[in-house]
């Protein structure tokens, strides 16, 4: 065993993958870091999936433009996978002509895999490893997205001591597997997580984690799902929130203000940025 030379890493600082918008990249210190797990927490309809879809497209950009020149694996646990939206985003994506593929379709470099249960995900990890070892593509797999991790755990486990222990052991197993892959192959791993409502006076989820004392979304007090044990498993946690302007009651053009904030991250101070979702993608403003 030999220590790693950190000097070597200065010239080659932790690689980041752009999320496709310079403003958001600045908020995230350059993008999603490689060799670690980044978690996106948000309630439904805030833009987690939009973020991830955009990320897997922009990962294909060359490093000179903030990408990783990489293909990605999109593991989805909620059906259906939004193919149409990916298609739509890919039209706005700057196509990259390469010597052998004059007009490569960006969707070709996104692998999609459905996973239904936590055990299936555990089983998928060695397969991903084999794939990574044998992949000789010019666009190596560098990004893994799991959308969403919470869906795997929200049904199969009872609220009993034994089941909760089994559950948290699985968290650590999955996170350990992902982290070791991330380290070995320089992957950027993104997992999305849902939120649960916090009930006043209720205990259990009220533990403060990170920069933001309380998380608010849609005017409700929320907390990331899966509890404290899972929070220990991720390296960085980002929170996406939305606030509906109550003016439009008819719902025809209800404007939501969305915001992304850093809850905790080893390399980032607390910061946040507003963003919008358009046909072309997710953009900071």
């Amino acid at each position: 065993m030999q220590p790693e030379n950190l000097l070597h890493q200065i010239h080659l600082p932790t690689q980041k993958c752009t999320v496709g918008c310079p403003l958001l990249d600045r908020c995230l210190g350059g993008g999603i870091p490689c060799n670690s797990i980044t978690e996106l927490v948000a309630e439904n309809g805030t833009g987690k999936t939009q973020f991830c879809l955009q990320l897997v497209l922009y990962a294909q950009l060359p490093p000179s433009r903030g990408g990783l020149s990489a293909s990605s694996l999109y593991i989805h646990t909620e059906y259906p996978f939004p193919f149409r939206r990916l298609r739509q985003l890919s039209r706005a994506f700057p196509l990259l002509p390469t010597p052998d593929h004059p007009v490569a379709d960006p969707c070709d470099r996104v692998f999609v895999q459905g996973v239904y249960t936590a055990d299936e995900l555990v089983d998928a990890l060695p397969k991903i490893e084999l794939f990574l070892i044998h992949s000789k593509s010019r666009f190596p797999l560098r990004v893994i997205v799991i959308d969403s991790i919470a869906a795997l755990f929200r049904s199969d486990f009872d609220n009993t001591g034994l089941d909760l222990r089994r559950r948290s052991s699985l968290f650590f197993k999955i996170a350990g597997g992902l982290k070791s892959l991330a380290k070995r192959f320089g992957l950027a791993v993104v997992v999305t997580n849902q939120v649960v409502d916090l009930i006043e006076g209720g205990n259990g989820n009220g533990v403060r984690v990170g920069n933001l004392g309380v998380l608010y979304s849609s005017g409700r007090r929320v907390a990331p799902a899966l509890g404290l044990a899972w929070a220990n498993c991720v390296n960085s946690r980002l929170f996406l929130s939305r606030h509906d302007d109550g003016a439009d009651v008819d719902g025809s053009c209800s404007k939501s203000r969305r915001r992304i904030s850093v809850v905790f991250a080893p390399h980032l101070p607390h910061s946040s940025s507003e963003f919008v979702i358009t046909t072309e993608g997710v953009f900071g403003r």
Binding site: L6, I10, T14, K183, P266
Partner: peptide, 16 residues
Amino acid sequence: AIYIDTEGSFMVERVL
């Protein structure tokens, strides 16, 4: 110093 990282949260840019 010896730094043993089990979680992958050690970021060189932050150390710098």
